[in-house]
C-alpha cells in the first residue's frame, strides 16, 4: 500500500512518519514513534485509555486517522513532565491522592484532565466528572481521581 508522509509535532518535537492511509494516530505513536504511554484498551473509542491531545483537544487516538494529524501539535503523556523529569502538577496530584492503581487508564485520564484544566482552570466537580466520563477506570472507583484533578486545578490556579 502506498504510504503518505505526515509531518507533525509530538511533545514539541518535529516528527515525520510515512503512514498507511488506514492507520490511526495511536498506531503511529505506539509503533512508529515508540511512545507507548497511550494505551489501547478497546480500539473503539469506548475506554479512553488512548487519549492524547491534538491541538490541545483530548481525542481517542485509536479512532483518530493518522493522516489527520498532519500539521497538528500532539501531546502525549510522555510530554507532560518538565525537562528535569519533574512531574506536571496533574501527574503529581494523581500520585499523591492515590488516583493510580493498575495505571493502565492513567495516561489517558491525566490527558483528559489536562485538556479540561487548560480550558477551564477551576472546574466544578460535575464538570470534572463529565470531562472524565470517556475514560474508564476499573480499579479506583474514580473518587481519588476526581480529588486529584481538583487538587491539581487549585495548584495550577494559584
Amino acid at each position: 500500500m502506498e504510504r503518505i508522509t505526515i509531518r507533525f509535532k509530538v511533545n514539541g518535537e518535529d516528527a515525520t512518519v510515512a503512514v498507511e492511509p488506514h492507520w490511526n494516530l495511536l498506531r503511529v505513536l505506539r509503533e512508529e514513534l515508540e511512545l507507548t504511554g497511550a494505551k489501547e484498551g478497546c480500539g473503539a473509542g469506548e475506554c479512553g485509555a488512548c487519549t492524547v491531545l491534538v491541538n490541545g483537544r483530548a481525542v481517542n487516538a485509536c479512532l483518530y486517522p493518522a493522516v489527520e494529524a498532519d500539521g497538528a501539535e500532539v501531546t502525549t503523556v510522555e510530554g507532560l513532565a518538565g525537562p528535569g523529569g519533574e512531574l506536571h502538577p496533574i501527574q503529581r496530584a494523581f500520585v499523591e491522592k492515590g488516583a493510580v492503581q493498575c495505571g493502565f487508564c492513567t495516561p489517558g485520564m491525566v490527558l483528559s484532565a489536562k485538556a479540561l484544566l487548560d480550558r477551564m482552570p477551576l472546574p466544578s466537580e460535575e464538570e470534572i466528572r463529565t470531562a472524565l466520563a470517556g475514560n474508564l477506570c476499573r480499579c479506583t472507583g474514580y473518587a481519588q481521581i476526581i480529588e486529584a484533578v481538583q487538587a491539581a486545578a487549585e495548584e495550577l490556579s494559584r
Binding site: 497511550a38 494505551k39 507532560l80 501527574q91 494523581f94 500520585v95 493510580v100 495505571g103
Partner: peptide, 22 residues
Amino acid sequence: KAIPKVDGAEKVTGRTVYIHDL
C-alpha cells in the same frame, strides 16, 4: 501512613511497561 504508591510516578508518566508495550 498514607504513603503514595511507589510506582505512581512511572505510571503517570507513561513509562510503565505492560505486556502490550513489550
